[in-house]
Amino acid sequence: MANESAYQATKNEFNTNGGQILLYYIDDVLYGIEIQYINEIISVMPITVVPRVPEFIKGVINIRGKVVPVISVRNKINKPEIPYNDRTSIIIVEIEDLTVGLIVDSVREMAEVLPTDTCSAPDYKMVNENQYIKSIIDSGGEIKQLLDIHKLILE
């Protein structure tokens, strides 16, 4: 599929060229997301629950008249839910015409990633938790996990 190959291309491109990522926390682990997907970051707002969908879909929110589904990144990476607080943020991303909100514990800053800092995810034979990790970034004495938002949202 055309989408698939384009997606592979961007995946490899990041590992070879680096780029800007937004850093955010789940618990005290740092994660990253590429800037080109991000529309905006908002603080958490009332969420309308949609029944009978998987647990990671928390519901829908109203962003200037548009109904946007929100996903709990916590749930996706198998961490227990915690109550929202004033640091809780929703990162609104747009990917293949889908607009989706990602709920994270808090966001930190934008960071520039050099290609030399990236290392690609290990090749597990078994499918496990690491399935969302696209790349690990080791810079400034910190480890950041770049999650694959294609997989996070579309699978």
């Binding site: 949609v50 009978r52 969908v53 998987p54 879909i57 829908v60 109904v67 946007v68 589904p69 015409d97 889908l98 607009t99 989706v100 949202i153």
Partner: peptide, 11 residues
């Protein structure tokens, strides 16, 4: 309409 994301859950 619901986001196309919900389509696969037969909402």
């Amino acid at each position: 309409p619901f986001s196309p994301m919900f389509n696969r859950y037969n909402i």
